[in-house]
């Protein structure tokens, strides 16, 4: 089998170490009409627990002006020679015991009582805000818990959010 070689496609990246900042800036840039995607920062640029907004270099001036005017938060602007594949994390749902559903997103597991949507446990992860996020949302339902990305700031918290969003879709579908 022959694979077509990927052509270099220069891109601009705006890096943030706080998930709240990156989600906010991504939404503003999207509303401004930029072709944006969330991507993992490459080695050498990454500080560790960060996420980047990717867009065309031609749109970098717009992004800079939005940063200067305070419409998006200041991030580190970098340029890369090739585009980076967007993050595509998907949570998988398993019935762990009768009546309990677990959503697993990589190393994060969120478990709910299927009867009422109560979050009964969160396990996994290694970023510092996870114990706080877990203790804050556990015992609340999928609909009355605070949004994890509004109370946490790391990639592990972003995975908790993805797991909870997937459970909301799954349980909402079952209850219709």
């Amino acid at each position: 089998m022959f694979f077509k070689k990927k052509e270099p496609e220069p891109k601009a990246l705006l890096l943030y170490t706080n998930i709240q900042d990156v989600i906010y800036s991504h939404s503003v840039l999207l509303k401004e009409g930029l072709g944006v995607s969330l991507v993992p920062p490459p080695a050498g640029i990454a500080a560790g627990c960060d996420l980047a907004v990717q867009f065309n270099p031609a749109e970098a001036e717009t992004a800079k002006s939005l940063m200067h005017s305070g419409h998006i938060l200041p991030g580190q602007l970098h340029y890369v020679a090739c585009s980076i594949d967007p993050v595509e994390n998907v949570a998988m749902i398993i019935e762990i015991e009768p009546g309990y559903l677990m959503a697993k997103c990589n190393n994060i597991k969120v478990t709910i009582d299927q009867a009422n949507g109560e979050i009964v446990n969160i396990s996994g992860g290694g970023c510092p805000d996870i114990p706080y996020v877990a203790q804050t949302v556990t015992g609340k339902t999928l609909w009355d818990c605070p949004e994890p990305v509004e109370i946490g700031s790391t990639l592990c918290t972003y995975m908790v959010q993805l797991a909870i969003d997937t459970l909301r879709q799954e349980v909402g579908r079952c209850w219709l």
Binding site: P40, A46, V87, N107, G125, C156, M159
Partner: peptide
Amino acid sequence: GEMAFLADPKALHPMY
């Protein structure tokens, strides 16, 4: 899940 992260030479965080 973390073992998969350790195995992936390119990933800098389990999310990736």
